[in-house]
């Protein structure tokens, strides 16, 4: 059985073809430009994973929101649950780039980290 798939790991968007045996075992992945494509294809057919980015409330800085990213992918269907958990976070400036804001979110083994630094800012 052959499945066509566009790789979504990066914006390169490789067009891939995956060959599976009757029992679902993946026999081959072709069309990918890097190893990450191969592992994406395998995972997407078994347990699709997604990266999640969002913002958290921050006090005392120029902006009211601090952008955050997870340290690793989570199962696709967990996005809503993780969003809910992240929304409880509120931080105070200053925050460092890649500062961990919450460990092991929803027991998924990944952490929430700041995707930028944010200094203190006094409003004029």
């Amino acid at each position: 059985m052959k499945t066509e798939m566009i790789c979504i790991v990066c914006p390169m968007s490789c067009h891939m073809e995956i060959e599976q045996a009757e029992d679902g075992t993946i026999l081959s992945v072709i069309g990918n430009s890097c190893n990450r494509g191969d592992s994406y294809a395998r995972k997407e057919l078994t347990m699709p994973m997604r990266m999640l980015t969002t913002t958290v409330a921050i006090e005392g800085s120029l902006h009211r929101r601090l952008p955050v990213i997870l340290t690793g992918e989570i199962p696709k269907e967990k996005q809503e649950e993780v969003m809910k958990e992240i929304s409880k976070i509120c931080v105070k400036a200053p925050v460092l780039y890649q500062q961990i804001l919450k460990q092991d979110i929803c027991d998924l083994g990944v952490a929430v980290m700041a995707s930028r630094s944010m200094d203190c800012y006094e409003n004029e």
């Binding site: 913002t55 929101r65 929304s87």
Partner: peptide, 11 residues
């Protein structure tokens, strides 16, 4: 407002 910190309203 977006949810966050004490303003959290639950999704």
């Amino acid at each position: 407002e977006l949810w966050g910190g004490d303003k959290h309203a639950g999704i």
